[in-house]
């Protein structure tokens, strides 16, 4: 028996919007720790890891660790029917081949339930090593969205270089080249407008902009995004989900032949 009640239902709506373009179907893992997911895109270039910790739910009942396979496009369709202020409850009975999403309006005058078919999905989890990254950048998520969008009108790939002077995003294409440099700036009114660069070692890696643009679908979840990079490792693009968890995207770099 699984019953998860999330007062801020809009978070789950935003999570689905953030991952459904990258991954079509996935197993959600439910345990006493929380509601989580790890899945790769179909070409195995990117990986998304979601965590919604049990403490973040108003009610969290998960009698045993289970995986429930869902088509994310269909799940997103159903969650779109929930109002932004609605409370969302996810329910699944043991051995059932369906999951129920219940939406309650804040004043309790409208209650909907949507039953969705589950899927059998073969998936294997990858071990993500706990690494101290050589460089990490915290910046406004809107700024990162803007940079990825702007650069993808010029080129297909971006080189992200972190030095003590700042972080440089470089692309080039048929029409020319573009460089955007962001410097550390922590002297701002609001912490979410700050850009903070931590660098143990300078790092420079190249990535496909198509994927980074897809990751920015998570922008509504968090004002701040963190980019973590080390030489010859996938970049981690992390959006925190309040204090209840995160969506992390891992993207394999482009490698010189």
């Amino acid at each position: 028996m699984l019953e998860l009640r999330l007062v801020q239902g809009s978070l789950l709506k935003k999570v689905l919007e953030a991952i459904k373009d990258l991954v079509n179907e996935a197993n959600f893992d439910c345990s006493s720790t929380g509601f989580s997911l790890q899945a790769m895109d179909s070409s195995h270039v990117a990986l998304v890891a979601l965590m919604l910790r049990s403490e973040g739910f108003e009610h969290y009942r998960c009698d045993r660790t289970i995986s429930i396979g869902m088509n994310l496009t269909n799940m997103a369709k159903m969650l779109k029917c929930a109002g932004n202020d609605d409370i969302i409850t996810i329910k699944a009975d043991d051995g059932s081949d369906t999951v129920t999403f219940m939406f309650e309006s804040p004043s309790q005058d409208k209650i909907s339930d949507f039953e969705m078919k589950l899927m059998e999905i073969d998936s294997e989890h990858l071990g993500i090593p706990d690494t101290e990254y050589q460089s990490s950048i915290k910046m406004p998520s809107q700024e990162f969205l803007r940079i990825c969008k702007d650069l993808s009108s010029i080129g297909d790939t971006v080189m992200i270089s972190v030095t003590k002077d700042g972080v440089k995003f470089t692309t080039s294409g048929d029409i020319g080249t573009a460089n955007i440099v962001c410097r550390q700036n922590t002297s701002v009114d609001e912490p979410e407008n700050a850009t903070e660069i931590k660098m143990q070692e300078p790092v420079s890696l190249t990535f496909a902009l198509r994927y980074l643009n897809s990751f920015t679908k998570a922008t509504p979840l968090a004002n701040i995004v963190t980019l973590s990079m080390s030489a010859d490792l996938p970049i981690v693009v992390e959006y925190k989900i309040g204090d209840m968890g995160y969506v992390r995207y891992y993207l394999a770099p482009k490698i010189e032949e």
């Binding site: 270039v45 990858l126 071990g127 996938p234 891992y250 394999a252 490698i255």
Partner: peptide, 14 residues
């Protein structure tokens, strides 16, 4: 140009 790496070449199956 540079080749796209695969995530499975960095992270191994559990």
């Amino acid at each position: 140009g540079p080749q796209q790496g695969s995530i499975t070449s960095f992270f191994k199956k559990k």
